[in-house]
Design a protein around this nucleic acid. Structure first.
Lengths: 332, 332
DNA sequence: TTGTACGCGTTATCAA
DNA sequence: TTGATAACGCGTACAA
């Protein structure tokens, strides 16, 4: 049972109103009683009850963050960025995982709503357009990370998938590759679609006509396994390079190449997307598209705070850049 | 402005008490009005206000989790495990990062207290014994992950560092190594101490006398850099094997070996501790001690829930096991 | 300068 | 079967 301002009031022989004011250094309370009460509060181990304050304020100073899974090297940094900005502004962060399950995702959002979070941040949602209709009812700002949707309370911060993918594939083309495969995963359909689009744009620009049997789309949660599994098909199509929709796909392919004695990048150039930490720990180190992950989280949270402070906010698309490492090389 | 039960009451022409009961399927309300009100509630888009409920219940159904940093492949899984257990039990998770800064850590805990979380989980704390005195005042269960402390409300779930480290070093000894170095990092003093203890125990058991100049203790936040930096000293002492206190240290050393053309494991055997994901993506794959990370989080949360349900709970020490991969080999 | 009374949204007690 | 009232902890308009 925690100490309340009424408890302090009783001991101090004043009303709880006076205590409330003294603790907030309200000017109308005499310096003397203010000091006395603040001292007393500390002595009695008083801690303000934010729950009660929230009820009164109609503001919980709380943000709900929905991620697909926390155990994802990509999400991790985004959450980290968001949390640090939130805390510095006096907000606390609720974290919920959707595990790539739309039902769970809506469930988490619903719980957040019940807890009266002031705003919600959602990363790589799978609920898609459902949001637009379902979430406007909540009437609080919702910032989508890497997933644009239109709606009254909907905002987004995203990385330029199309252009990023295009840059990666242009890099492969500049190395002399022509038979360039695309490996995607439909678990995140929108990102996959945009990155494939970038891939196609690069080919088109170079006058290379795309081939359906060089485009692979997996449907599993385990990107590493998928990358490995696709390798044979890809070689059968005599691809000399592959652009993977995510680094984990690329890593799976890399490991699989090592197992089967396929030299990377000599026999096969591999490029990824995301620039997760693992990218420079594998060997050869992975050429990839760097996403400003922490910044993504920070920006999303800053946007939320701006909106809560009545400022306006514009959707943002962050550029991402090519990082050339060791897994891509000139076509021999 | 959200819909409240009073709003519904007005529309339905009943008292808000009746609405409250109807929504909870209270038996004393007629089936008819119950149905009518539930329908109305859905139609009006009513969402219960947990904040108000919490004020009344003196229970927020909320757990605060403090991690050093979210951007740590180890923490990530622990949080993931904890979150899933919490949510299934109807609890929400507050996440706060201490960034290895004791001041921040206490700050986060204080905020959690103000928010009246029902319990707190702290991973790899740096505050140490400060907790025992400081945190008992909060009078809620606190579960420490990988950091034992004694106190009335203090519980812990930890991995058996000593035995784990000992197993790793015994593995190296069994491969014929005698000049085995230890590489630690004092940023996490307690874990470091225990793992060094396990290292010494293994040497002693094998009748090898420890040498001070084979024991290295770094003091930087960047384990990868530290591992690299120590490599020369270690070679100068003609160590043939090294046991690293964390996988990141081992990875740093591994990468540095590759750069300088030192063959692993032929010229130097390297063993780590943690079994983070990266361990099987580096090449050679890292021999290490596997920690049941997700289980650690799950168990901690389960313990919290048990305590909140009035059950008793016992501190737990989980075994961890050796995973032999490619970075260790027979002394040639 | 301080105190009284009310309300935030909900549930529980008691009465009708 | 339903309703009026009080209470959770706090802040604030108004009164003293």
């Amino acid at each position: 049972m925690s100490i309340t301002i009424k408890d302090i009031a009783k001991v101090a022989g004043v009303s709880h109103t006076t205590v409330s004011r003294a603790l907030k250094n309200h000017p109308s309370i005499s310096a003397e009683t203010t000091a006395r009460i603040q001292h007393l509060a500390r002595e009695m181990g008083y801690t303000p009850n934010i729950v009660a304050q929230s009820l009164l304020n109609r503001r919980t100073n709380t943000i709900g963050m929905v991620v697909t899974t926390i155990a994802d090297p990509f999400m991790t940094m985004v959450v980290d960025g968001a949390e640090s900005v939130a805390r510095q502004a006096g907000y606390s962060l609720f974290l919920g995982a959707s595990h790539n399950n739309p039902r769970d995702e809506l469930d988490v959002v619903k719980t957040f709503h019940q807890r009266r979070v002031d705003a919600i941040i959602v990363t790589s949602s799978r609920v898609g357009s459902l949001y637009a209709t379902e979430l406007e009812k909540i009437e609080i700002p919702i910032v989508l990370i890497n997933d644009q949707q239109d709606g009254k309370y909907l905002y987004s911060v995203a990385v330029d998938d199309i252009h990023g993918a295009q840059t990666a594939v242009e890099h492969l083309i500049s190395l002399g590759h022509r038979r360039i495969a695309y490996l995607g995963n439909t678990v995140r359909p929108e990102a996959n679609r945009r990155r494939r689009e970038g891939y196609l744009a690069a080919l088109k620009k170079a006058g290379i006509s795309p081939e359906t049997n060089l485009i692979f789309d997996g449907v599993t949660g385990d990107d590493v396994a998928l990358g490995a599994q696709i390798l044979d098909d890809l070689r059968a199509q005599s691809a000399t390079a592959v652009f993977c929709c995510t680094d984990m796909l690329a890593v799976g392919m890399l490991l699989s190449c090592r197992e089967r004695g396929i030299a990377v990048p000599e026999q096969l150039s591999i490029a990824g997307f995301d620039d997760i930490d693992i990218a420079h720990f594998v060997s050869p180190q992975l050429t990839t598209i760097h996403q400003p992950r922490r910044q993504l989280g920070q920006l999303a949270m800053q946007m939320v705070l701006d909106l809560l402070n009545g400022k306006s906010a514009n959707n943002q698309i962050l550029p991402c850049e090519l990082v050339v490492r060791e897994s891509t090389a000139k076509l021999s």
